[in-house]
Design a protein around this nucleic acid. Structure first.
Length: 611
RNA sequence: GCCGAAGUAGCUCAGCUGGCUAGAGCAGGCGUUUCAUACGCGCCGGGUCGGGGGUUCGAGUCCCUCCUUCGGCACCA
């Protein structure tokens, strides 16, 4: 479905091609702290894309993991007073827990401290050394431990011995190291980029890379030390530079080179990442390394922008950081939604996933705020999506069984076709914002359809056939919406399916069938109809409008919701790693129970949903 | 400094290769419905499309110039 102008298309072996997995990756994340909503965005985008490919029958394979060989990891471990391996295990576990909470269904959690990874990295090094792409030389210059980076003279302020860009302390080093012949690949890379317009996404990043590769220089890829990290084969005093090591994980997962079937996984179909590691690493160094190895390049490299947050002091938008205004943790956001809405955790997780996918921008940065999260929750999820289903299922003229329509509504079907087309077009560019917009314009059409047809009036007039037709169309529309949102809101979609009396919303590989009008089977009894997304009352005073961080609320909040989630592992103590003290005064809000008494039944019901 | 992108309604943004009275969502106002989660639907925007020049029968849409903002320039989702 995408332009398949791969450099070395292996179309000869169709048998093998059929077995090729649709390979999706996130970066392997630095183990420098618990993942925040920015990191979560990358993983959720990848997870949603994986689920979409699964729906389409493309056998996805989803990799995420952690990058653990950096030298500063040992420093952080020392500071924490722990053995490095223990420290790394613990931090890595934070990622595992967060992805579990966020319902990210990866196939492998890759850790660069695994033996199999080290072997492949050394194999790559050995091969490139033999081919001359890796060669020994003398490096003299500045190195920053904090940044894991070598700097040029012009990048360093010699007076203070700090890197201009980062302000980090640098030290003068002169050593015999190995270089990678990056400079040799600029032209070929440029050719490939120009020949494959959708290789680098979005456009702005593509332009950046084209400018960047005009003047490539060879890079130093080893350090003279020993200990933590991957050794240069046969040279115990040298460690392979962490970025050179890390990127190889994507390939190592395939089992290359020993596994004869490595090409059922490689090349990757799409690498997702934030923009900061896009140009230098994923769009330049990594493709160059692959070219040097004579291996095919990934089909798509997709970068997204950053979340910016409002600095309460200056009122300006700043990028989240540990020192300044922190980006919230996903756990804080879902806890906040749980408390404000009374919805079960899985539904709040979906709501967060929705916000992240809906509002992140690929080509630029975007603002992250609790207000916008709540607006998305109320307007899009509660008022539009949740209500359009609920208003039919609970209608007095509806008897609880999918009715038999006498005809299908051509206009509504056309709107459905448009929605699917817009959705597919958006996702061909990995643009979830556009895809979701397309779904919501269809939800709008559904609401309008119901109002126009006014089945309640038909019911009063005794037109049972008319009622049956309208209700069927409305519910069928809700079914289609559920299918389309399922990659982003898997739990909510499953709940919608359950309410519609459907066992499985869409079997794998039946995309055409799942999106065809008329999927609901007349005569099927529906499940229990309860509001999916209980509305958040924004009139009630909130703890802090801009700064969320309800870490301390976790204790005081209604115990019922936190105890009914056997599906997820405990999320630890999210409040611990950040400093939510910035502006948030005590959450002087009325205690949790935001919903009328009757709703507890609802909540319990949702907790039973199998995810 | 160099390179790139962007400046369109209160907010977030669509507007592709120039062409009907400049659009959407959110927020706000008014009206209305009652099937529904005080939800839905309808109506309401005197916006100099950053400023100034130019090309054209016609320009957010192309060219020049100026201003502002943001990003990349080998650390960070």
């Amino acid at each position: 479905m995408h332009t398949m102008t791969a450099v070395t298309p292996d179309t000869s072996n169709s048998d093998k091609l059929n077995k090729k997995r649709y390979y999706i990756t996130t970066p392997i994340y630095y183990v420098n702290g618990a993942p925040h909503v920015g990191t979560a965005t990358t993983t959720v985008l990848a997870d949603a894309t994986m689920r979409y490919q699964r729906l389409r029958g493309n056998r996805p394979y989803f990799l995420t993991g952690t990058d653990e060989n950096a030298r500063k990891v040992t420093d952080a471990a020392d500071e924490a007073g722990k053995p490095t391996q223990t420290f790394v295990d613990e931090v890595s576990q934070r990622f595992v827990e967060t992805w579990k909470l966020l319902n990210c269904d990866y196939d492998v959690f890759f850790r660069t401290t695994e033996e199999r990874h080290k072997r492949v990295v050394q194999e790559v090094f050995t091969r490139l050394k033999a081919s001359g792409d890796v060669y020994p030389g003398i490096y003299e210059g500045w190195y920053s431990v904090a940044d894991e980076t070598f700097f040029r003279d012009t990048d360093v302020d010699e007076a203070t011995q700090t890197a201009r860009e980062t302000g980090a302390k640098v030290e003068r080093v002169r050593e015999e190291t190995y270089f990678f012949r990056l400079s040799a690949y600029g032209d070929r890379l440029k050719e490939h980029i120009l020949a494959n317009p959708d290789f680098l996404i979005p456009e702005t990043r593509r332009n950046e890379v084209l400018a960047f590769i005009e003047n490539l220089r060879d890079i130093n890829i080893t350090q003279n030390r020993s200990g933590w990290g991957i050794e240069v084969p046969g040279e115990p005093g040298k460690i392979i530079y962490v970025w050179f090591d890390a990127l190889i994980n994507y390939l190592a997962e395939s089992g290359w080179p020993e596994n004869p079937n490595w090409d059922t996984l490689w090349p990757a179909d799409v690498h997702f990442m934030g923009k900061e590691i896009y140009t230098r690493f994923h769009a330049t160094l990594w493709p160059a390394m692959l070219m040097a190895l004579n291996l095919p390049l990934p089909r798509h490299v997709v970068g997204h922008g950053w979340w910016l947050v409002r600095d309460p002091k200056t009122e300006s938008l700043v990028k989240g950081s540990k020192s300044g205004v922190p980006l919230p943790l996903p756990q804080q956001m879902t806890a906040l939604l749980e408390e404000r809405s009374g919805a079960p955790e899985a539904i709040c997780v979906d709501a967060l996933r929705y916000y992240l996918c809906r509002d992140i921008q690929l080509q630029s940065d975007a603002e992250f705020s609790v207000d916008m999260l709540i607006t998305r929750y109320n307007s899009d999820l509660a008022n539009d999506l949740g209500n359009v289903l609920n208003r039919q299922l609970r209608a007095k003229y509806f008897d609880g069984t999918i009715p038999q329509p006498s005809e299908h509504d051509a206009d509504l079907m056309a709107a459905a076709r448009d929605a699917v087309a817009g959705y597919e077009a958006g996702l061909a560019r990995f643009d979830w914002g556009a895809a979701l917009q397309s779904v919501w314009s269809f939800v709008g059409a559904l609401n309008k359809y119901i109002d126009t047809k006014a089945p309640w009036t038909l019911a009063k007039n005794g037109d049972t056939q008319g009622v049956a037709t309208v209700v069927y169309q409305a519910l069928e529309g809700a079914r289609l919406a559920a299918v389309l949102i399922s990659p982003v809101l898997p739990s909510a979609a499953a709940a919608m399916g359950q309410q519609l009396g459907i066992a499985t919303l869409a079997a794998e590989g039946t995309w055409e069938e799942a999106t065809r009008w008329g999927g609901l089977v007349p005569g099927t009894p529906i499940g229990e109809a309860t509001p999916l997304f209980p509305r958040i009352d924004t009139k009630k005073p909130s703890a802090a409008s801009t700064n969320p961080t309800p870490s301390s609320k976790k204790n005081s909040k209604n115990m019922s919701t936190s105890e009914q989630e056997p599906t997820f592992a405990p999320i630890g103590e999210p409040g611990k790693t950040t400093t939510p003290s910035d502006s948030a005064p005590a959450p002087a809000t009325p205690p949790a129970p935001t919903t009328p008494a009757g709703d507890t039944v609802t909540i319990d019901d949702f907790a039973k949903i199998q995810l």
